[in-house]
Design a protein around this nucleic acid. Structure first.
Length: 205
DNA sequence: ATATCGATTATCT
DNA sequence: GATAATCGATATG
C-alpha cells in the first residue's frame, strides 16, 4: 500500500452558508476530477463570492433564468457558464434552495495530473513557472479540468464518486487576503475576492 | 429577428 | 497597458 493523505469530500452543510463564508473556507481545499484510474487534483487558492439577487455583479441579479438556475437550487452544485465566446467558468452554488449564491473558482495550484492539464490547455511545460499557465485564471482552470456547461453544469460536487468534486486534505490554509473582485463593472468596490496570501498561482499578481 | 455585452485570455506595443 | 477574438444568453422590436 502506498501512503496517501486522506481526502474527505465536503458535505452539503459546508455549502449551506453565505457565499463569503463558503468562499473563505474553500481556500486550501482541493478540486478533483475523476477520470477512471487517473485523477486531476489542484488546490483552491483564489475564489470570489457572488451574493445572489441583491448583488448587481452576480448572474443571479436578474432573477431566475435557465442560465442561472443552478444558483437558485440547493447548495453544493456546479454552476458553469460560458463567457466571451471562448471560456467556461466554474462556480459552486451555496446558501439554500430559493436563495441564490455562488463562489467562483478563480485560480488553483496544480497537484496531480499536470501533464493531462497541460495537454488540455495546449501548453508545453518547460520552466517551473509554466505551471501558472495551467490553472491560474477562471477560464484556464476550467479548460485544464475539461469543464464545460454541457458536461458539468448542475452536477453534485459533494460526491467523491462523481466526476468532479471538492475535498479536504487537511492542508493548513494560512493567511487569507481579501480584495475587490476582478473583471466586473458593477459593485466593483466590494471586497469579495479571497486568496491565499503569497501563493504564486493566484490569477492577477 | 436582430442587437448588445460579458465573473477572460492571448497577443500584441 | 491595450485590444481583438468569439458566441450564447438576454433584451428589445
Amino acid at each position: 500500500m502506498t501512503s496517501s493523505p486522506s481526502l474527505s469530500p465536503l458535505n452539503r452543510s459546508f455549502f449551506a452558508r453565505g457565499p463569503r463564508r463558503v468562499a473563505r473556507e474553500l481556500l486550501g481545499k482541493v478540486l478533483v476530477r475523476n477520470r477512471g484510474n487517473l485523477h486531476l487534483v489542484a488546490r483552491i487558492v483564489e475564489v470570489e463570492a457572488y451574493l445572489g439577487e441583491n448583488d448587481p455583479a452576480s448572474h443571479a441579479a436578474p432573477g431566475l433564468t435557465p442560465r442561472n438556475a443552478v444558483m437558485f437550487g440547493p447548495p453544493g452544485f456546479a454552476y458553469v457558464y460560458f463567457i466571451y465566446g471562448a471560456h467556461y467558468c466554474l462556480n459552486v452554488s451555496c446558501q439554500r434552495e430559493g436563495l441564490a449564491g455562488a463562489v467562483l473558482f478563480r485560480a488553483l495550484e496544480p497537484l496531480a495530473g499536470l501533464q493531462e492539464m497541460a495537454r488540455a490547455r495546449d501548453v508545453v511545460l518547460h520552466a517551473p513557472h509554466d505551471l501558472r499557465k495551467l490553472t491560474s485564471g477562471p477560464g484556464r482552470l476550467a479548460q485544464a479540468f475539461g469543464i464545460t456547461r454541457a458536461l458539468d453544469n448542475g452536477s453534485d460536487l459533494t460526491l467523491p464518486s462523481s466526476s468532479l468534486w471538492i475535498g479536504d486534505d487537511g492542508f493548513p490554509r494560512g493567511t487569507i487576503q481579501v480584495t475587490p473582485r476582478i473583471g466586473i463593472s458593477k459593485a466593483a468596490d466590494q471586497r469579495l475576492r479571497y486568496l491565499l496570501k503569497g501563493n504564486p498561482f493566484v490569477s492577477h499578481p
